[in-house]
């Protein structure tokens, strides 16, 4: 298969970027999207050009590192997969593929397709944890948790922190990401103890970092590689409002 790639190139955070077009040929249909990028990059190195910088690591869809906006979709046109799980058989031979970095004020471009997602870490540092010291805990089976609650908590905990939600949202809102963490812990008795504090602190940090306001479009859940539902956003809203009304 052959493809024309229109890729955003940007030297560094301060430089102005632009699209450049490349061609890749003889790509096997069972090549993954990122392997196709590897092939392009190896060609570029041989030509003495700088390869396209892009984030990636585990290539199994779990680390959340890969982050490309492909043909208008975060992680490409397939649903419920990360970029690294996308295969070239999903594209048409000869197709032009447009590849852009995440675009969101809170995710500034570092180089080419690499963006700075440290804002997500900062939100979690604000309260995305249960304050428990190593060792000072009870036996695991002392805290029975219903199968349904554990499953729902796990649904939300599947978030890989890739940033597709904020990158997709027309408002640059990180609500799905924040909600996934708040909701996952809110479903567990261990997490309930500091639930109010967590919701308030994480939302405050999210607002402070310049993420936008959720308008419930649902675009985030459509593009989320882990199909995390916006019903978790409802739970975040509930947690937050209940906490604020108690203040």
């Amino acid at each position: 298969m052959n493809f024309k790639l229109k890729i955003w190139r940007q030297k560094d955070a301060k430089s102005k970027g632009e699209f450049k077009t490349y061609e890749v040929t003889n790509i096997a249909s069972d090549t993954s999207f990122l392997e196709m990028m590897d092939i392009l990059n190896n060609d570029l190195v041989h030509k003495g050009e700088e390869p396209v910088a892009f984030d990636h690591d585990c290539r199994e869809g779990i680390c959340g590192m890969c982050s490309m906006h492909i043909n208008g979709h975060a992680h490409g046109p397939e649903t419920a997969v990360t970029t690294c799980q996308l295969y070239m058989r999903k594209f048409k031979d000869g197709e032009t593929i447009t590849i852009e970095p995440w675009r969101s004020a809170a995710f500034p471009v570092i180089k080419d397709l690499v963006v700075d997602r440290s804002a997500y870490d900062k939100i979690l540092q604000a309260g995305g944890f249960i304050s428990v010291r190593t060792g000072s805990v009870v036996d695991a089976n002392c805290i029975p948790i219903s199968n349904a609650d554990a499953e729902e908590s796990m649904d939300a905990a599947a978030c890989v922190g890739c940033g597709a939600c904020a990158a997709t949202c027309k408002n640059g809102s990180a609500m799905l990401f924040v909600a996934a963490r708040v909701s996952s812990l809110a479903k567990l008795p261990q997490g309930r103890v500091e639930g109010a504090r967590r919701a308030k602190a994480m939302v405050a940090k999210m607002d402070e970092l310049g993420f936008g306001n959720c308008t419930n479009t649902g675009a985030c859940q459509a593009e989320c590689p882990k199909s995390i539902s916006i019903t978790h956003i409802a739970r975040l809203n509930r947690e937050f409002l209940a906490a604020k009304l108690k203040d």
Binding site: G72, G172, F211, G212, G218, E223
Partner: peptide
């Protein structure tokens, strides 16, 4: 106004309507 700011200066060259997202909501 806040949301436009949060979206950033640089916009996507290609945009689509995501699956299940209503036109009205956007």
């Amino acid at each position: 106004i806040q949301n436009r700011k949060a979206r950033g200066q640089q916009r996507y060259a290609v945009t689509v309507t995501e699956k299940g997202v209503s036109w009205a909501s956007k």
